[in-house]
Amino acid sequence: MSRTPLRLLVLALAAALAAVVLPATAQAAPYCGITWGSGAKQAGSSAPAIRGTELTAVRAGQHACYDRLVLDITGSTRVASYRVEYVPAVRADGSGAVIPLRGGAFLQITVGVNNYARPPANSGNVADVSGFRTFRQVAGAGSFEGYTSEGLGVRARLPFRVFTISGPGSTVRVVLDVAHAW
């Protein structure tokens, strides 16, 4: 047997073994098992707020795989609607003025809520997110005609999820989780 056919046989065998050990279709597992995506999320009708609802607090927390923002709403056991989406710039309700935010990507959070129970003293920093892995800044974007908005500056366009939790009493929480990575 000459060296050329032997070399071809060895190369063919090595390629076959590589295909078995490293299949071309293998993909990395999602970060922390997260499969949320970064497209817009919404729930409820596009109707404005239920009369008497108020945004009473905006809180932030850190978890192992994501950062969390919680909007506390009182006055109803349900939220008429919410929409959360990445936007080029967060805009104020009513005026459309750009809300300056730190971060590489921006989420506009709009909920069907009449207004703030007490407008935040510093609407440019509604919740303290200093030291968070993903969040960079939370800012109030105002209330207008039955809708209230918040702006969230994040490190980059990352996957997120949104859901609501009812209770206690006439309180509803809109929860937004943004993953640390893809």
Rank of each mutant, 00 (worst) to 15 (best):
A92G: 08
Y66R: 05
N115V: 12
A43W: 05
L107N: 03
F135K: 04
A26T: 10
R136N: 07
D177E: 14
R161H: 02
A127R: 03
A92V: 13
G96N: 04
A57I: 12
P88H: 14
F144G: 10
G169R: 15
S130M: 05
D128P: 03
A181G: 03
L6I: 14
T25W: 12
A16V: 10
R3F: 14
A80G: 11
W182V: 08
T134Q: 04
H180N: 13
R91D: 08
T110D: 08
R7H: 12
R118Q: 14
Q137N: 04
L8N: 15
A16E: 09
H63R: 15
R161F: 00
A89S: 09
R83S: 12
A89D: 15
E54D: 12
Q62I: 09
T53I: 04
E54F: 10
G52D: 13
T35L: 14
S2L: 15
P48E: 03
F135A: 01
T56W: 02
L13I: 14
S45K: 02
A60I: 03
V172F: 05
Y116T: 06
S46R: 11
P159E: 07
G142V: 01
V84K: 02
L101P: 12
V79W: 10
S123C: 07
S38D: 08
V174P: 00
T74H: 13
A105T: 00
R68N: 07
A49V: 04
P23D: 07
C32K: 12
T164D: 07
A49G: 01
L71N: 02
L22V: 11
R91V: 14
A47C: 02
T35C: 07
Q108I: 00
R68S: 02
S81E: 05
C32S: 10
